[in-house]
Design a protein around this nucleic acid. Structure first.
Length: 644
RNA sequence: GCGCCCGUAGCUCAGCUGGAUAGAGCAUCUGGCUUCGAACCAGAGGGUCGGCCGUUCGAAUCGGUCCGGGCGCACCA
């Protein structure tokens, strides 16, 4: 609601300055430190001071006197060293909020692709993967809320060493065949079994380096797609992908398509990319030095501080392509630059009816859908991969795809590590070296980490204990549903409250907290407001009761005005978070909005209000709060339980 | 060695393109449930924004430098 007014103010002010002083400067609008200063502040006089060689305070006073009246603005005032504080017309803002408004979604041109989750399908998902998926999913919802057409991809590396290692574990360590693995699969928690096995085989390699030959053999078999080892690889990867999809769906996270590495290999995506790279001389065949016999990208292409000799191998001397090479091909496909596409078949349909497809190599029985070909691509990958992401972008540039290179965005974030206390609580023994650190890196190879499903279960358990103690009258199913919503709310909020470049040192006590700045705090505010609306019975006809005069009278109350203001800032908050690319900003807004509501809740009893006009107004404000909070929570992927 | 990130209250973190008295949560202390549910609210204490230079009307924010911590820099993915 406020965003329109804001742009009106900005254009009026900059226009006036242009005419009056003949200068064109970017005008900024801020929120004053104190609410008593007004609703907005213009620091523009400070900027003008230099150019006009005049005291900022004098300029501010001049502007206050000369600025034309702006629709919706009550008054202007020069303050402090040169601020212009600005008060809004309360009645006008209120009237605008009551009138139903059509929100014009700014439809973006072209498709935006967001790739996230991307967990190696060889073990259970852990807290690090949760951060990736929750961050990615929330960003997707932010984009969609702004009218963008978004395609969500979850890349499945089903032919890599990590899958191979688990296959090695089954085949060589456990001496298990296809039937044995399938029997294990039928039991619960296959991803947990693989988690342990992966840690074991990793340790085994350490103790018996000669066993690495098993990995090479297995990897080769998996890449060729033939034989028993390849079949085992398929079974493992497919089953684990199912597990991951289930885990993520518990958090409300969906995908549109699962492109798999096996199809990138079989459909020869790399061959097409290789041709283009050679043709454009983006890579060359090294004939001397340590990389002799390899196709390499010169170091200067992706890092200006590097020498050309400090190059990155794209194709190994044995003719196989590296991870980065495959990633360049995949990135090209995302932009539709490969001249190829996968075939697809349905993978599953979520309970809300949304289908997700998986890539296949064969046109037989393929679904009539297509993916990729985006205008802009966001890769949600942790910051440790930034070097490789740079190489991928350099590849696009070297191919003269400059627009695509500029639209390849590494949506990076810092890792989730384990706090020493969390390690102790899990009974993990740390090396002396690790103990000295402020936090320890999560490691699948070491089996060091908190599994996503375990954490969710733990959260549900403790939410259930709370819900149970407060709602004896509800059925078990109802209580479980509420506890689940609370648990997911707590988890998503926890992962989102940190800005992207903050390392999260995972701590059980913080993650399991339901008080203070948490998801449940916000959900609680929503539930309380919902209860009032429910108890109020039939809602009044707001447009009829809340006339301009009524609003003007009631909004003289500073508390009510501040509440209306807070609610009105939702649009801005959503837009600002998207611009900054920080879901954390939106999470914080949800918290602050709820804080505002909590004091409103205490100060203004709604149901027993005897003044009918005021009661209607309070009800309307309550509804406004709930509606705006619901919008925000929807983007954050947090549901409001029926009770709590 | 080179590159990226971080250093703000006892702890965990915010602080938007430099702007008015640096903010939350947790923890500590005080007060508030016969009043729409206290997973809440009100209040108190607690900070040389890692150090030092610089840029400017103005710096937690920009630049330089030093100190401390993390992560990268493979013919692994």
């Amino acid at each position: 609601m406020l965003s329109k007014l804001e742009s009106r103010i900005l254009s009026a002010v900059s226009q006036h300055i242009l005419i009056r002083y003949g200068v064109e400067i970017p005008v900024a609008l801020e929120q004053p430190r104190q609410a008593s200063f007004g609703e907005f502040a213009l620091p523009v006089a400070f900027q003008l001071a230099r150019q006009l060689k005049k005291a900022p305070r004098a300029i501010a006073e001049e502007l206050v006197a000369e600025l034309p009246t702006i629709d919706g603005v009550q008054s202007l005032e020069a303050a402090g060293g040169g601020y212009i504080n600005l008060r809004l017309n309360r009645e006008a803002l209120c009237a605008a909020a009551i009138a139903p408004s059509a929100i014009a979604a700014a439809a973006g041109d072209g498709k935006v692709i967001v790739e996230h989750t991307n967990i190696n399908p060889n073990k259970a998902a852990h807290i690090g993967h949760l951060r990736n998926a929750i961050l990615g999913d929330t960003f997707v919802k932010m984009l969609r809320a702004s009218g963008q057409n978004v395609e969500v991809q979850n890349y499945i590396d089903n032919t890599g060493v990590q899958v191979a290692d688990v296959v090695v574990g089954f085949h060589y360590l456990e001496k298990m065949g296809q039937a044995d693995v399938e029997a294990l699969l039928a039991q619960e928690k296959f991803d947990y079994a693989c988690w342990d096995l992966y840690a074991r085989i990793s340790q085994y390699y350490k103790d018996n380096p000669e066993a690495l030959q098993w990995r090479r053999d297995t990897l080769h078999a998996i890449e060729s797609g033939e034989g028993e080892l390849a079949e085992l690889g398929r079974i493992v990867a497919d089953a684990i992908v199912e597990c991951h999809m289930n885990t993520m769906w518990r958090l409300g996270i969906q995908y549109d398509v699962l492109p798999r590495e096996s199809e990138i290999l079989h459909l020869k995506f790399w061959a097409s990319a290789f041709e283009q790279l050679k043709e454009q001389k983006a890579i060359y065949l090294e004939t001397e030095g340590k990389n002799s016999g390899c196709w390499v990208m010169p170091g200067s292409a992706f890092d200006e501080n590097r020498e050309d000799e400090d190059s990155k191998v794209i194709v190994r001397s044995n003719g196989t392509v590296t991870y980065v090479g495959k990633d360049i091909a995949y990135q090209m496909w995302k932009f539709g630059l490969l001249g190829k596409d996968f075939y697809y078949q349905p993978f599953r349909t979520y309970s809300d009816g949304h289908p997700v497809f998986v890539s296949t190599a064969s046109p037989d029985g393929a679904a009539a859908v297509s993916f990729g070909g985006g205008r802009k691509v966001f890769n949600v990958i942790d910051s440790r991969q930034s070097y490789l992401q740079d190489v991928v972008v350099a590849g696009l540039k070297a191919l003269n795809y400059h627009a695509q290179a500029a639209n390849s965005i590494h949506f990076s974030y810092e890792m989730v590590a384990m706090s020493p206390r969390a390690c102790v609580e899990m009974g993990i023994e740390l090396s002396a070296e690790d103990q000295a650190k402020p936090y320890v890196e999560v490691s699948g190879r070491k089996g060091l980490g908190v599994k996503a499903d375990d954490l969710i279960d733990k959260l549900i358990d403790s939410a259930l204990a709370e819900v149970g103690s407060r709602n004896a009258d509800k059925t078990d199913d109802e209580k479980f549903a509420a506890a689940s919503a609370i648990a997911i709310g707590a988890l998503r909020y926890f992962m989102l409250k940190f800005t992207r470049n903050t390392v999260i040192a995972f701590d059980f006590q913080e993650a399991l907290s339901f008080t203070g700045e948490t998801g449940p705090y916000v959900q609680y505010g929503a539930v309380r407001s919902g209860k009032i609306l429910l108890k109020a019975g039939d809602l009044p006809d707001y447009a009829a009761v809340l006339t301009g005069a009524v609003c003007a009278r009631l909004l003289e109350d500073e508390g009510l005005w501040q509440h209306l203001l807070a609610v009105s800032r939702t649009d801005q908050a959503i837009a600002a978070a998207l611009t900054a690319g920080e879901p954390a900003h939106l999470a914080r807004f949800a918290f602050q909005l709820t804080q505002q509501y909590s004091s409103f809740y205490r100060d203004y009893p709604v149901i027993q209000e005897s003044d009918a006009e005021k009661r209607a107004f309070l009800l309307w404000l309550t509804g406004q709060f709930r509606a705006q909070l619901d919008r925000t929570l929807h983007i954050l992927g947090i549901q409001v339980p029926a009770f709590m």
